[in-house]
């Protein structure tokens, strides 16, 4: 049977009535924890033009989180801040490329990533299903907060214009872009590529590829937990958080993406509350979502909203 065109797919995800209260409580709990930032200059990764720092701060559950912070040496006045959020099985990059374009760029390593895994390390595969039977134990409860706390780090930097902070990422970074923009109103521009963590339960029916296959694996072994899993994931689904996004946002998808099905990207886009939103759907592309060309679109979008 031919598939429904991606932009006509109807998500089966249902939104919990108390989703906003749940996240407001998590945000409040996180805010009670002192950030305790530690910023260490890294001469090995710094250049004549870019200063690079290794950063550590404290997040939800008092987990210590790492990140790379890169800023241009030559600057006049406060810089726009840009948060780069990582893919599922990649290591957060040193964001020198963004610093070279005039941003105070922070690349966060949420819990479980290398350098942030001393207190929490479910592994890969593993992170996607860890604690999935309860919204209060699910791995992404803290993981989302770690990305959100990157905002707090930038807000505390005197060289950063706190009124001009953006967030961007691809795949899981796309999903974290959606969640961070939804949960932190300080975000003024968001660019999500091939967003993951959107339409979790839809995705295990739309694709047999990993990482979503981790959920299918789990339900095959623990079929009796299906309802609990669905209930939990509904609180974390980007489709269900999108109504909180009010900043300008762009989303890109590849129409042949087998990792993060484009159907879920469209469903997320449709649910975004912001009037200033745009979808870039690339036919003939998979999980790359035409990043080779779309990167210039993201550059221009961030410059327009954070620099002009």
């Amino acid at each position: 049977m031919p598939r429904t065109p991606a932009d006509q797919y109807v998500s089966k995800v249902r939104k919990p009535e108390d989703i906003d209260r749940f996240w407001d409580d998590v945000l409040a709990e996180t805010a009670q924890i002192p950030l305790e930032p530690e910023v260490v200059y890294d001469p090995l990764r710094s250049t004549a033009l870019i200063d690079v720092y290794e950063v550590f701060f404290t997040s939800l559950d008092h987990v210590r989180i790492a990140g790379w912070y890169a800023v241009p040496r030559q600057r006049e006045g406060p810089l726009p801040g840009l948060i780069q959020v990582p893919g599922y099985n990649m290591e957060p990059p040193v964001p020198k490329n963004w610093a070279a374009r005039g941003y105070a760029a922070f690349s966060v390593a949420p819990r479980g990533k290398l350098r942030s895994n001393r207190q929490f390390n479910p592994g890969y595969p593993g992170l996607l299903t860890y604690g999935m039977v309860d919204r209060n134990t699910y791995s992404y409860r803290g993981f989302y907060m770690d990305a959100c706390r990157a905002v707090d780090f930038l807000l505390g930097r005197e060289e950063v214009n706190g009124e001009r902070i953006g967030v961007t990422g691809h795949s899981q970074g796309g999903g974290l872009t959606v969640s961070t923009a939804a949960l932190r109103p300080e975000i003024k521009a968001a660019a999500a590529g091939a967003p993951y963590l959107c339409g979790y339960m839809d995705s295990i029916e739309l694709t047999d590829a990993y990482p979503y296959q981790e959920i299918a694996d789990y339900l095959r072994l623990y079929p009796d937990s299906r309802q609990q899993v669905e209930d939990t994931l509904a609180y974390f689904d980007g489709i269900n958080l999108a109504h909180r996004i009010t900043c300008p946002i762009i989303i890109s998808v590849g129409l042949q993406d087998s990792t993060c099905p484009p159907e879920t990207g469209f469903a997320t886009f449709d649910a975004i509350a912001s009037d200033d939103k745009k979808m870039y759907a690339y036919d003939g592309h998979g999980h790359d979502a035409n990043n080779h060309e779309h990167a210039a679109v993201v550059d221009a979008f961030m410059a327009a909203h954070l620099k002009d």
């Binding site: 099985n89 990993y210 296959q213 993406d257 087998s258």
Partner: peptide, 15 residues
């Protein structure tokens, strides 16, 4: 290049 090896590379068919 990276810390993670997948059972099946991300995006390829588990089939």
């Amino acid at each position: 290049y990276g810390s993670v090896t997948d059972l099946v590379p991300q995006g390829q068919a588990n089939g």
